[in-house]
Write a protein that binds this DNA or RNA. Structure first.
Length: 415
RNA sequence: GGAGAGUUGGCUGAGUGGUCGAAAGCGCCUCCCUGCUAAGGAGGUAACUGGGCAACUGGUUCGAGGGUUCGAAUCCCUCACUCUCCGCCA
């Protein structure tokens, strides 16, 4: 959510910035609503102040044993007038609120301008691509059982068997160790979250159809970002302790409504997948520096796994709703002959903090913190990348040396 | 599932109809004392929000939402959550 004062004071600036991400903000609507608000609010508050004074006079008369009849009549009139104006004001305030909730975050000045995905900028590429293998992960290994998953649950689930299940476990530990070695505190968290938590991070109310909801009005988390961010909801954090760095491994659940027919094969897009999330609550003055660091922390995993990848900066038109700057990390997927997203690292500035009410105090007053997060990494997609990039062409997959101590072997037999 | 207790400021915790945005303590800030540190002393310190160039000043908020009342942290109703005991299960 944007700061309404910014809209009052600098509407033009906001409008121009949002235009870059092709969001048209309705200036006339906002300004006429805010104008009405101002008039009504001043009226209501003056009436309320009058009433408060009259009420305390009433108390004095009463305790002095004097008559209160005529005063009560005056108060009753005042109350009628107040109620009328107040309900008008409420309607206006609701309209302003819902207007604000629909506005995405303002892109940072440094974000390249562009319309869509095609205008994203490749920042760097790493590792070299070996194009000899073109088989996909399902063709390479029989350790992913889609039929069993269908029997157990349905489409977009999978069953991992034997050493592949073990490899996933190894990756999770490996990634968590990477995070904690950079000062992220590890958390074990609920995999379900309540409504307020999802509003705090911005999934609700707008993206309800993307979530799985339980009978008890809880939602399965679509990412650990939800519980990790909400650890700090309605909290004052200590300025000296910023940035606070936290991490967690959780399964993630996504309904994938609206992506029918997209990435239907294999582990690419599942209702349930494992992910390690990196999250920082930062000081507003250096959140961009922290984003660079978080991005580097995520990239380091791919470096250690010796997988080819590129870092892409999203252009203004491709930026997520809550983000002011995002780098995607894309790993090379041989069977698709292209890079695919394996992590998305974003700075949300104070956009989430405002919704979730994450603040700190110092001499100057109270301020919203900034939140940044990114995957480090999506485990399912890492498995695909390892299988497809490291396939020896016959019967095994090479395990990168830094992962060997976690997995317990230098190769994985494909069947 | 049954019975009971609770939810108050950054934190702990008083407060049963007006003098309460709220005692006290902790924390934090400023100043004094002190060679330094510790201890001690004085004062200040909730959040959100409106109007105003400003000085300043108004409104809202005691888990959430309704109600009673001229007036609600305080009384009534509904809901959420937390805790204790019993039962059940691991």
């Amino acid at each position: 959510m944007l700061d309404i004062r910014k809209l009052r004071d600098n509407f033009e600036e906001v409008k121009v910035a949002l235009k870059k991400r092709s969001f048209d903000i309705d200036q006339e609507k906002f300004q006429s609503l805010d104008k009405k608000r101002k008039v009504l609010q001043v009226d209501v508050e003056n009436l309320q102040a009058d009433k408060n004074k009259l009420s305390s006079e009433f108390g004095k008369l009463k305790s002095a044993g004097e008559s209160t009849d005529s005063l009560k009549e005056t108060i009753d009139k005042k109350t009628l007038e107040l109620n009328e104006k107040d309900s008008e004001l409420k309607i206006i305030l609701d309209k302003i609120e819902s207007f604000l909730l629909r506005i995405p975050n303002i892109p940072d000045d440094s974000v390249p301008e562009g319309k869509n995905e095609e205008d994203n900028v490749v920042v760097s590429t790493h590792g070299s691509i070996d194009s000899t293998n073109t088989l996909d992960h399902l063709e390479i290994t029989g350790l992913i059982d889609v039929d069993l998953a269908v029997k157990l649950a349905g489409a977009r689930f999978s069953v991992l068997k034997g050493d592949l299940a073990k490899l996933q476990r190894a990756l999770i530990t490996f990634m968590l160790d990477n995070a904690t070695s950079h000062g992220y505190e590890e958390y074990y968290l609920p995999f379900m979250a309540n409504r307020n938590s999802l509003i705090g991070t911005g999934q609700l109310p707008k993206f309800e159809e993307d979530l799985f909801k339980t009978y008890d009005k809880l939602y399965l988390i679509p990412t650990a970002e939800v519980p990790l961010t909400n650890l700090f909801r309605n909290e004052f954090v200590n300025e000296d302790e910023l940035p606070i760095k936290v991490t967690s491994h959780t399964p993630c659940f996504r309904s994938e409504a609206g992506s029918y027919g997209k990435d239907t094969r294999g582990l690419m897009r599942q209702h349930q997948f494992e992910k390690i999330e990196l999250l920082q609550v930062t000081h507003p003055d250096n959140s961009m520096k922290c984003l660079d660091e978080l991005l580097a922390n995520a990239c380091e995993i791919l470096n250690k796994l010796e997988l080819p990848y590129q870092v892409v900066e999203l252009c203004t038109g491709d930026l997520g709703f809550s983000s002011c700057k995002t780098f995607d990390i894309e790993v090379w997927m041989p069977s698709q002959n292209r890079y695919r997203e394996i992590s998305s690292c974003s700075n949300f500035s104070d956009f989430q903090a405002r919704r979730a009410n994450i603040k700190f105090k110092n001499k100057e007053g109270t301020h919203f913190a900034h939140t940044i997060n990114g995957s480090g990494l999506a485990v399912g997609r890492t498995l695909i990348a390892l299988i497809e990039n490291n396939y020896n062409g016959t019967d095994s997959i090479k395990i990168p040396s830094s992962l060997q101590e976690y997995f317990g072997s230098d190769t994985l037999k494909t069947s």
